[in-house]
Simulated scan of single mutants.
Amino acid sequence: MNVDLLPHMFALAAAYGLALPIGWNREKEERSAGIRTFPLVALASCGLIQATERLTADDPEAMARIIEGLITGMGFIGGGAILRLKDSVRGTATAASLWVTGAIGVAAGVGSFDVALVLSATTVMTLWLLTPLKKLTNADPKDE
């Protein structure tokens, strides 16, 4: 049995690290998922890809099915973050962020670190830079 931890550790650490700023943002915004959840989602997604790579090495369709299952699972987890209130729906950004975080883990797991980095950076920029804009557009004129 050949054990080569270094490549796996690098991919797992990259997935964890790239998800951390997303979790930090959600934690600061006091959302249902935060600083612990997001890195764990990326870590699990990456780990599942890496754990099955020997099984799927000669069968790209098998890897595609595993990725498909992860994408579906992320949809279920994200669905749990969405709350429907009387007049509004909350948690859609957190749900979308969880889905992207799963994709970050998958990208790191298959060695597409450039894709994982772009997904993370784009998500962080969207959450941080567009939040003030969202608050402006949702401002109630009666409150001013």
Rank of each mutant, 00 (worst) to 15 (best):
E53W: 14
W128P: 05
W128A: 11
R36I: 05
I104V: 03
D59C: 12
L117Y: 00
T122V: 00
M63R: 14
A81T: 13
D114H: 12
A14N: 09
C46L: 03
D140A: 03
G73M: 12
G75P: 15
T131G: 09
A19L: 09
R65Q: 12
D114S: 09
G69W: 08
S120W: 06
L6V: 09
A93Y: 11
G111I: 04
A13G: 07
L43W: 09
K142W: 03
N2P: 12
L136I: 11
M9S: 11
L70I: 04
A121G: 01
P141S: 01
P21C: 04
L119P: 01
K135S: 03
R65L: 10
A93N: 10
G80T: 00
S112W: 15
T137G: 13
I82C: 10
G111L: 15
A13V: 08
T123I: 02
L20C: 07
P39T: 00
A108F: 15
W128D: 10
T131E: 14
S88Y: 07
E27A: 06
V124S: 06
I82R: 05
A64L: 10
D58C: 06
I104P: 00
T122I: 00
V41S: 10
T92H: 14
L55F: 07
P132D: 07
H8N: 10
P132T: 09
E61P: 11
M74W: 11
A95E: 07
A51P: 01
W99S: 05
K86D: 15
H8D: 12
E29W: 15
A95K: 05
A33S: 14
P141R: 04
D143T: 02
K142V: 00
L133I: 01
I82V: 05
Q50Y: 08
V89R: 06
M125A: 13
A19S: 06
A108V: 02
V118L: 06
M125N: 04
T72K: 11
T101W: 14
A33M: 07
M63D: 08
L40H: 11
T56D: 10
S120M: 00
G102F: 05
T101L: 07
A57G: 09
G47L: 14
V3I: 09
A14Q: 12
P132N: 02
E61R: 13
T137Q: 14
L55C: 01
G23N: 09
V3K: 10
